[in-house]
Design a protein around this nucleic acid. Structure first.
Lengths: 237, 237
DNA sequence: GTTTACGATATTGTCAACAATTTTGTTTCC
DNA sequence: GGAAACAAAATTGTTGACAATATCGTAAAC
């Protein structure tokens, strides 16, 4: 149920050409890990080389990413990792606050004992990454917790939405977050999981709501630089 | 605030080549109107002719539509208007019930007097279409009410989601709905608008929730034919 | 010394031709 | 007459080349 690495149709072990959706997923991951910073240029040629596919494949992948607002596609200029504005950031959190508490409620009602076990082991990974100061892993795992929750909820529509919103949130934290700090406090994740294991949907929902508000409160929306990092403003003193 | 017909960058009056997103929007509209029935083949050549654009443009549009699950893209077989299964239909309504009551609540808080006026005139159009038995208009306007509400709520993230969900709902009603009946009762829309005009977010939310449950209850999920309409089953008697 | 204009380079957007696959129609065999 | 095998047509998928645009470096002008 959680995780699925295999390719499209069951193909042999060989290094097959990744499909569009797989490339999209890989770029999602890279954005979540903050290996791809906001505003970074994604040239077609470089991506072709990186994924070992033709230009058309990359082009379509970038179009998909742009339709999910993870990259911006400027005509004749190319593709750039999105740099959400403060306004867009507020909209993303507004949407997450609408959806994810409900997702958590559903997950609490539908979680099998096995789901709880898997989520607990995920939480252990989170804690370990945090303890060892592996910031990148910590960020990724923290985001994946929300995605796993959506998987447990068993609704593919909201799963897709949560994936998109979690990815965009990583960009938002990269722009508006305090430098050293990770995104989520994982005590929150632990509490949500407790509510889940007790089948307490209402509590899971309200904890998720509180959790998301906490994350948003640790951002500095309202002041920051806009879409493309404004060089003039940076070097003006 | 509501509606925006103009093209990308302000271009002259001439019949410019429509961009991908515009083609996607046109196909959304056609699906909402039920001019494109579930399962219908969308051949590239035909669409090229219809929109007067090259094959690549169409190809990208179909990819976008497929990523929103409004069309299915079968390898080497082509594009087909999606035929949601009963399970997918349940997921769509589950998602709508998560999102749209919250959207309605937001809209109630943010609606300007002008927004209310525009929505009231929209409601008048709905009533007129229903009275004159213009079923197609009735269906389209009924769906657009939900989209307009999302526009008033002023969150582009949820706006995009609502557009997608409303479109898929039109397909679902085409498959699982009773033949003659429209999708929404528009008394419901009127009540929601009343709540909006009074700034009563809670009432707007609960009315929207009730409204969506009503729509879902008038469907016959659980029994019907699956993904591609099963010809063998249809002609077996 | 700074700014503007120009040309070279690189990147993106588009088109047309080709290959691969499916679908359809016909023939052959039982 | 019906079913399987084969061939023809149509449709989709992909590659490569070419045109349009933007970026960068250089040189000329003020």
């Amino acid at each position: 149920m959680m995780e699925a690495v295999s390719d499209t149709a069951g193909q042999d072990a060989k290094a097959e050409e990744p499909a569009e959706e797989e490339i999209v997923e890989r770029i999602y991951e890279a954005v979540i890990d903050q290996r791809l910073p906001p505003g970074m240029k994604l040239s077609e040629a470089a991506l072709c080389e990186a994924f070992g596919v033709g230009r058309m494949r990359i082009r379509q992948s970038l179009l998909l990413l742009s339709s999910r607002e993870v990259v911006n596609l400027l005509p004749n200029r190319g593709a750039f990792v999105a740099s959400p504005s403060a306004q867009q950031a507020r909209e993303v959190f507004e949407a997450r606050l609408m959806i994810e508490p409900n997702v958590a409620r559903l997950a609490a009602l539908r979680a099998s004992p096995q789901d709880v076990v898997l989520l607990r082991s995920h939480l252990a990974l989170e804690a370990e990454a945090l303890k060892n100061n592996r910031r990148r892993d910590s960020i990724r795992l923290s985001g994946q917790f929300h995605v796993h929750l959506a998987e447990v909820a068993g609704n593919s529509v909201t799963l897709r939405m949560v994936k998109e919103l979690v990815t965009r949130t990583s960009l938002i934290i990269g722009i508006f977050g305090s430098p050293g700090v990770s995104n989520c406090r994982d005590e929150d994740h632990g509490e949500i999981l407790d509510a889940l294991s007790q089948g307490d949907g209402e509590r899971a929902a309200s904890l998720m709501s509180r959790h998301l508000r906490h994350i948003q409160e640790h951002l500095e929306l309202g002041s920051h630089t806009e879409k493309p990092s404004d060089l003039a403003a940076i070097f003006r003193r």
